[in-house]
């Protein structure tokens, strides 16, 4: 099943649609949320909130807002950030967590039940440190180019291209 096939079912609130959507994306959303909040129970609560929001606001999604996957990832990031704020964490995303996704891998590895993700985890650990940082900020934490340029002290004009090179390394490994 692809995004394009799933979307009309969700819009109709078809009985099976929720289950299909959950199967397709729960791990992706959980991965992003966990990376921001670093606590499995809190992350599960946020995941629940995110699915309710997606389900209730699905009518407000249309393709001019970008890919469906992108839309739900943004909801997951925003909901997690709201949650952290409401818990009295510092107001800034920058102070959320000093860990990046690779550090968290070692914790989650023991708990992961999916054999097929082990291969990519091993590969991800071998990515250039520069790539780990840039993907962590831009994708997992949702930084803008300016914020990433400030944080990593690299020229603004090269943020996009460096990130592309890193994603290309990943794509070569995955052959997509």
């Amino acid at each position: 099943m692809t995004q394009e096939e799933l979307l009309p079912l969700i819009l109709k609130k078809d009985d099976k649609a929720f289950t299909l959507m959950y199967d397709m994306y729960s791990k992706n959303l959980y991965g992003v949320i966990y990376n921001l909040i670093n606590d499995r129970e809190e992350a599960e609560d946020v995941l629940q909130e995110v699915f309710v929001k997606i389900w209730k606001n699905i009518e407000s999604y249309n393709e001019s807002k970008g890919r469906f996957f992108t839309w739900i990832i943004n909801i997951a990031r925003n909901t997690t950030i709201d949650k952290l704020r409401s818990k009295g964490f510092n107001n800034s995303r920058k102070n959320l967590s000093s860990d990046n996704f690779v550090h968290l891998l070692d914790d989650s590895n023991k708990l992961s039940h999916m054999i097929d993700s082990i291969g990519i985890q091993e590969f991800v650990k071998k990515l250039k440190p520069k790539c780990i940082q840039i993907i962590n900020l831009l994708f997992f934490k949702g930084y803008t180019q300016q914020e990433a340029s400030d944080e990593l002290e690299i020229p603004l004009g090269t943020v996009k291209t460096q990130n592309r090179n890193c994603i290309n390394d990943l794509r070569n490994f995955l052959q997509v």
Binding site: G31, N35, R40, I73, S112, V124
Partner: peptide
């Protein structure tokens, strides 16, 4: 990538 990052 995001899939592989999720704990159980």
């Amino acid at each position: 990538l995001s899939y592989s990052m999720a704990p159980y």
